[in-house]
Simulated scan of single mutants.
Amino acid sequence: MNIAFSPCPNDTFVFHAWVHGLIPGAPELNVTYADIDITNTLAANGEGPEVLKISYAALPWVLKDYALLPCGGALGRGCGPLVLTKDGGSDPAALSGKRVAVPSERSTAYLLFRLWAAQNVPGGVGEIVVMPFHEIMPAVRDDKIDAGLVIHEARFTYPTYGLSLMTDLGSWWESDTGLPIPLGAIIARRSMDVKSLAQWTRASVEYAWAHPEASKAYVLEHSQELAPEVTQAHIDLYVNKFTADLGEDGYAAITSLLHRAAQEGLVPEFDLALLRG
């Protein structure tokens, strides 16, 4: 069976057991490691594999063909995207008319940024520039861009680029809604046995927690030369109870984000009932 997910530590940690044939009854996986912007596009174009990791923000474009699995993804608290600048300014008004780099226009990070900016940046930001997330911090540091929206391990490494935090969009979202932040979703083609896929995914998560040492070499192999302590911090932040089961808070967070985004015209309208079936 074909699957696509990112080489980030949380994804490799979650799927290590299944990839290595450690889940009884689960089919062998043919893995494609790809940035979330690539998997978002594959799913939207109908060219994606049977199972893949995408941004929750991309769900409205794919739910007719793909079902959301209730496990394996990334939601949480204290793990939101950051808006970074070089000058150390903390006033959002400074972004008015400025160029901002984002990792994808179909990412939760982008939706959160646009929802936040609508409330906090008078007149709105200027040009949005999409670039791979690992290029964003160097671009801000080198004055190629005015501000950057960063995700993943950049939370832990941005000070090494001499950058400053303007706002933590996760903190803003949590204070505004009281809900966790929906980041990455695991989806499967509706033609597949979605129930079994969810069971195997959850089993892989549970194996990872029960045998944390087993996945370390695999995680480090794909972690883009991150230090072991950074990969562990990444896993600790993004692999949590919502990875095992979305639960009511998880579904409420997803519904709130996509409903707000649709109201702002950032995503197409869709039947919210498709999120659960």
Rank of each mutant, 00 (worst) to 15 (best):
Gly184Ile: 11
Trp209Tyr: 13
Leu179Ser: 11
Leu183Arg: 05
Ala208Pro: 03
Ile186His: 10
Ser175Leu: 02
Arg260Val: 03
Ile186Val: 04
Val239Lys: 14
Ser175Thr: 05
Glu225Met: 14
Lys195Val: 05
Gln224Asn: 10
Ser256Ala: 10
Ala217Trp: 12
Arg190Asp: 06
Tyr238Leu: 02
Lys241Ala: 11
Ser191Lys: 14
Ala217Gly: 10
Glu174Gln: 10
Ile186Trp: 06
Trp173Val: 09
Ser204Lys: 04
Leu183Ile: 04
Tyr207Gln: 00
Ala262Met: 04
Arg260Tyr: 13
Leu183Cys: 02
Ala262His: 03
Tyr251Phe: 15
Gly178Met: 12
Asp249Met: 12
Phe242Val: 04
Ser215Leu: 07
Thr177Gln: 14
Pro228Thr: 06
Leu258Phe: 13
Gly178Leu: 14
Gln199Glu: 14
Leu179Thr: 07
Ile235Thr: 08
Gly247Ala: 04
Tyr238Cys: 03
Asp193Tyr: 13
Trp200Arg: 11
His222Arg: 15
Pro228Cys: 09
Asp193Trp: 13
Pro182Arg: 09
Val194Ser: 10
Gly178His: 12
Ala252Val: 00
Asp249Trp: 00
Pro212Glu: 12
His211Met: 12
Ile181Ser: 05
Leu237Ile: 07
Gln224Arg: 15
Gln232Gly: 03
Val194Pro: 07
Gly250Cys: 00
Ile254Val: 13
Ile187Gln: 01
Glu174Cys: 08
Ala253Phe: 08
Glu225Ile: 12
Lys241His: 15
Ala198Thr: 08
Leu179Asp: 07
Glu225Ala: 14
Ala188Lys: 07
Thr243Met: 03
Ala253Pro: 08
Gln232Asp: 14
Val219Lys: 09
Ala185Ser: 11
Thr255Phe: 12
Leu257Phe: 02
Thr177Glu: 12
Leu220Met: 15
Tyr251Ser: 06
His234Tyr: 00
Asp245Lys: 10
Pro182Ser: 02
Glu229Pro: 11
Trp209Thr: 08
Asp176Pro: 00
Thr255Ile: 14
Ala227Pro: 02
Glu206Arg: 06
Asp193His: 13
Ser204Gly: 06
Asn240Met: 10
Thr201Glu: 03
Asp176Met: 14
Val230Gly: 08
Tyr207Gly: 01
Leu257Gln: 07
Thr201Val: 01
Ala185Gln: 00
Ala233His: 03
Gly247Asn: 02
Ile187Glu: 05
Glu174Arg: 02
Pro180Tyr: 11
Asp236Ser: 11
Glu229His: 15
Ala208Thr: 02
Thr201His: 02
Trp200Met: 00
Gly184Glu: 14
Ile187Tyr: 00
Ala261Thr: 01
Arg189Ala: 02
Glu174Met: 09
Ser191Asp: 13
Tyr218Gly: 02
Ala214Asp: 04
Pro182Asp: 01
Thr231Met: 09
Thr201Asp: 03
Leu258His: 14
Ala252His: 08
Ala252Trp: 11
Ser223Leu: 00
